[in-house]
C-alpha cells in the first residue's frame, strides 16, 4: 500500500529534515504533505487519504495534542497512525500524548534512525 504522509511542524527546517529522512526509508511513500499547525493539518487530512502523521506538539493556533484530540473524536480518522516528534520530553506530556492515541513519541533532538524506527514500528500491523 502506498503511503500518504503528513508532516506537521511550525518549523520549516524540521519539515525539510523529516521529508529527507522519509525519502531515505524503503517505505512505499506516494506523497508527503506538509502543514505548519494543527488547523492546516486537519484541512489536509480532510482532503487527502493520509495514512501516517508525524506531528510536533508546540505549535501556534491548533497544537499537536489538540490535533490528536480532533482526530480521535472522528470516526473516520480515530485509528490514523500519529507519531509525535517534539521538544516536549516530560513524562507527563508523553503520557498525555499516548493517552490521546499517539502511536509513537520521538524527542527532539533526534537522529534519522530514531524516526525510521518509530515510523516502521507504528506501521507494523498489530500481532
Amino acid at each position: 500500500m502506498d503511503l500518504n504522509v503528513l508532516i506537521v511542524d511550525d518549523s520549516a527546517a524540521i519539515r525539510k529534515i523529516l521529508v529527507r529522512v522519509l525519502s531515505q526509508t524503503d517505505l512505499p511513500i506516494k506523497q508527503v504533505h506538509e502543514a505548519s499547525d494543527g488547523c492546516e493539518a486537519m484541512k489536509i487530512v480532510e482532503a487527502n487519504d493520509v495514512s501516517l502523521i508525524l506531528s510536533d506538539i508546540n505549535m501556534p493556533n491548533v497544537d499537536g495534542l489538540e490535533l490528536l484530540t480532533q482526530l480521535r473524536a472522528s470516526a473516520k480518522w480515530k485509528d490514523l497512525s500519529v507519531v509525535m516528534i517534539t521538544t516536549e520530553g516530560s513524562q507527563a506530556k508523553v503520557l498525555e500524548a499516548v493517552a490521546l492515541g499517539a502511536k509513537g513519541y520521538v524527542r527532539k533532538p533526534f537522529t534519522a534512525e530514531q524516526i525510521k524506527e518509530k515510523v516502521l514500528a507504528c506501521l507494523k500491523p498489530a500481532a
Partner: peptide, 16 residues
Amino acid sequence: DAMAEMANMIFGSVKT
C-alpha cells in the same frame, strides 16, 4: 528557521 529550531531544541531540552 534553523536558528529558531536550534533555540527550540536546546531550551526545550533544558525545560524538560
